[in-house]
Each structure stands twice: as structure tokens, then as C-alpha cells.
Amino acid sequence: MDRDRIELAKIPDAAFVYGGMRGRTMSSHHQSYAWKALVEGGIKQVKDLRQDYKGDKYKEICLANGIAYFHYPVHKGMDTIANMVKDFPKFCEFIDQGEFFISCVQGLHRTDIALCTYWVFYGADNGKEPPVLVGYLREKGHDAGKIFHVLNAFYNQLAEQNGVEPMPIEVFKERKLVIKQISKGGEA
């Protein structure tokens, strides 16, 4: 992936994470200027986190540019959490392949939630650093409460589904504390 080429596009709220990139959704005509940079920069897949998006426009734009599209809705509702858990192995596989662009509408809040879920339930066990947060930051007037709501529901859903806790509760609390520190502007 050519980070320099992608950075030249000045995609709003962009940050590099886990061998890929996060930022504002690229389905808007306001972002069409950046597609060339994503393609030339080596982006191979897009992860769309919008829970309420029902159209095919984004998928069509991706495919027209030779980029795979993966819809992974993120929301705090229990039905959505159940689907997140179901598709989580595929989501992790996509992240691990790198060369991705992940976003929700603004590339801020659902993207933070998805990346925190990846790290807490998978990445930390595989030597990954905690994610870069862009939306749920105290300096932007947000706390990590919604992240924790989804993480707690995800933990409970996994425990119910598998009949065992996904990790010891002490480890889970430690990982959430790391997220809280990052959200407050501290180091992980």
C-alpha cells in the first residue's frame, strides 16, 4: 500500500490502521476525487460499517474501481450485535489482509467501535496495537461510552453463543481500560 499516494487525497478524518486506512465514507460524490488515489495507493477492499445503508451505490463504485466491498453494519442494537458476532471472523480476516479502507458515514464513531471490537476480541491476542481513535475522543467532546456498550453486548453475545466467556473478565476490563485511556488522549 502506497500511504504517500493515499495521503495526497486528503480524505477527511483519515488515519492509517492495521495495514489499511480509515476515513469518511467514499460513497458521496463529494469524495469522488479520492478514488483514483485509493486505487493507485493499493486499496483492495472497502469495509462499509453503516447500519442503515440499504443501497448498492457504494458497492457499485467499489466494484467499478476493482475494489472488493464488504458490508459489516455496526450499531448498538442487539440484532446488529448478533450479526456482528456472526460475521466477526470474516471481518477479522479482511482486516488482517490489509490494504483496506474502512468507514462509516463520517469515518468517526462506528469506525472507532469496529476497530475497538477487532482489537479487544482478536487483535490484542495476536500482537496488534490498540486502534487509532478518531471520533470518540474527549478533546472532541465524546467519551467511549458507546464503544463500551457495544463491547459489553458483544462479550455477552459471544458468551451466550459459545457457552463460555470469550476471555477472562479481568482481561476484558483491562482491554477496555486501554480504550478508555486512548479516548481520554492518553497512551495505550
Rank of each mutant, 00 (worst) to 15 (best):
F100R: 03
L108A: 09
R24Y: 00
D4E: 11
Y72L: 04
I6W: 12
A15P: 03
L151Y: 09
M167S: 11
K44T: 10
L151D: 12
L108G: 06
H29P: 05
G42Q: 05
V105L: 11
L177S: 11
K86L: 02
D87H: 00
S103I: 01
P73S: 09
L133F: 11
Q31E: 14
G127F: 06
G66Y: 09
T80G: 07
T25M: 07
G41V: 07
K86W: 01
T80V: 13
A153F: 04
E7D: 14
R5M: 12
L63A: 06
Y122L: 10
S183C: 10
E174K: 15
H142P: 01
R110S: 03
M84H: 04
L177D: 15
K180L: 14
R50L: 07
L158W: 03
K76P: 00
V164M: 04
K86E: 10
G163Y: 10
L8N: 05
I113V: 15
P166S: 08
E139H: 11
Y136I: 05
N156H: 06
D56N: 13
K57A: 08
E60K: 15
A37W: 06
A124K: 11
L38A: 05
A14I: 10
I43T: 10
Y58D: 11
T80R: 02
E99M: 07
G20Y: 10
H30C: 01
G186I: 01
Q31I: 06
K173N: 12
D125F: 12
L63E: 15
V178A: 14
A124R: 14
E129T: 06
I113W: 08
K57N: 11
G135A: 14
G123R: 13
Y136H: 15
Q181T: 15
K128I: 02
M84E: 15
F101Q: 04
I11R: 04
G185N: 08
N152T: 11
Y69C: 05
K59W: 00
W35Q: 05
V39K: 14
Q181D: 14
H142G: 03
V134E: 08
A64L: 12
P166A: 10
A124D: 08
M26C: 11
